[in-house]
C-alpha cells in the first residue's frame, strides 16, 4: 500500500472486537481514505470520513480512516474516498497533486464510492476557473465545469430535495462558495434546492440544482456544495455511500447513554431544520 498514516481520529470511539470469518481469520477493516485534509478540509470536512467509519463501527463492522497527507501515496484499494473543501490556492495545489495520482485514478475508474465536497467537487470535475481567470483541468470523474460566479459568494444554510434513488427526505447543509457549476450530460444532479430564492445558498447556480452524481460507470461519485459536514447532518447520505461500499448494512447499534434527540438524529429520523414538506421529490435526469 503506502506510507500513509492510519488516523486515530476519532480517538474516543471504542473499537468493537475484530470480527472473524467462519474460518476464524480476522476481517480487514473497511478503509475510508481521507484525501489531503491539510489543504482540502476547510469546513470540518474530515468529519465526513469520521462519520463513515464510525457508522460502520456502530454496526459491528471494523473500519478505519486512512489519512493521505501531502507526501503520501493514495492507495488504489480503499473502500471509500472523501475530499473536502479548500480555499482557491489550496484547491489548485490539491488538484495538481491528485491529477498525477495513479492510486486515485484506479479507485475512481473502478467506481469506488467517493464523496467530494465544495472544492472537492470542483476538483473532480472536468475543469474549474479560479477568481484570477486561470482555468485548471480537473480529474474528470464528474462531468461538470465550474466558473467564477461573480457577485457575492453563496453563503448560508440550505434544504434540498434529493434526486438520487435511495435517498429519502430532504438534504441539508451549509454552503459557502463563489463558483457556479454546470453539469454535463454524464452527470446528474444530487438534489434540487427547496425554494432557492429564499435560501442563503444557490446550489450549483441558477436553476437551484445541487451537487452531482456520476452517471458513467457505477454512479458512485457524489459531489455536493453542502458542508456541515454533510454526512453528519445527513446520515441517510452517509448510509447510502456505505451501502455502495459494503452492501446491505446491519442495524445501527448506538452507544448507550446518548441524549434521545441526538440518537434520533443519528438514526436519520430527526432533522435540524423545520419547514420540511413532503412529496416534492423528483427523479434524477428529469
Amino acid at each position: 500500500m503506502s506510507d500513509a498514516r492510519v488516523a486515530t481520529f476519532p480517538e474516543g470511539i471504542p473499537m468493537s472486537p475484530v470480527p472473524t470469518s467462519p474460518a476464524g481469520d480476522a476481517v480487514d477493516p473497511v478503509t475510508v481514505v481521507l484525501l489531503l485534509p491539510e489543504v482540502l478540509g476547510t469546513y470540518g470536512d474530515a468529519g465526513n470520513a469520521a462519520v463513515l467509519a464510525t457508522r460502520l463501527r456502530w454496526r459491528g463492522i471494523p473500519a478505519r480512516v486512512l489519512t493521505v497527507g501531502w507526501t503520501d501515496a493514495v492507495p488504489a484499494d480503499g473502500d471509500l474516498y472523501v475530499l473536502g473543501g479548500g480555499e482557491d490556492a489550496a484547491q489548485v495545489l490539491a488538484c495538481d497533486r491528485l491529477r498525477d495520482s495513479i492510486g486515485l485514478r484506479r479507485a475512481l475508474d473502478r467506481g469506488a464510492p467517493t464523496l467530494a465536497v465544495c472544492a472537492g467537487l470542483q476538483v473532480l470535475g472536468t475543469s474549474f476557473t479560479i477568481a484570477d481567470g486561470t482555468r485548471v483541468a480537473g480529474l474528470g470523474a464528474l462531468d461538470l465545469e465550474t466558473r467564477p460566479g461573480g457577485g457575492p459568494r453563496r453563503i448560508g444554510d440550505v434544504v434540498a430535495d434529493p434526486l438520487l434513488e435511495g435517498l429519502d427526505g430532504p438534504l441539508e447543509g451549509f454552503e459557502n462558495h463563489g463558483g457556479l457549476t454546470e453539469l454535463g450530460p454524464d452527470a446528474a444532479p444530487l438534489a434540487r434546492l427547496r425554494e432557492p430564492a429564499r435560501q442563503g445558498g444557490a446550489g450549483n447556480g441558477p436553476g437551484g440544482l445541487e451537487g452531482a452524481v456520476s452517471d458513467r460507470g457505477h454512479g458512485n461519485v457524489v459531489g455536493t456544495y453542502l458542508h456541515g459536514p454533510v454526512l453528519a447532518r445527513n446520515p441517510v447520505l452517509a448510509d447510502l455511500l456505505l451501502t455502495r461500499a459494503v452492501g446491505e448494512l446491519p442495524p445501527l447499534v448506538l452507544p448507550e447513554g446518548l441524549p434521545t434527540a441526538t440518537a434520533e438524529r443519528l438514526r436519520g429520523r430527526r432533522r435540524v431544520c423545520g419547514d420540511v414538506r413532503s412529496g416534492a421529490r423528483r427523479r434524477a435526469g428529469a
Binding site: 474516543g12 470511539i13 464510525t54 438524529r265 443519528l266
Partner: peptide, 13 residues
Amino acid sequence: ADLSVRLAYAGVG
C-alpha cells in the same frame, strides 16, 4: 444539537 452529534461521533459521553 449539532454539538451533541459531534460529541456522539467522538465517543464522548
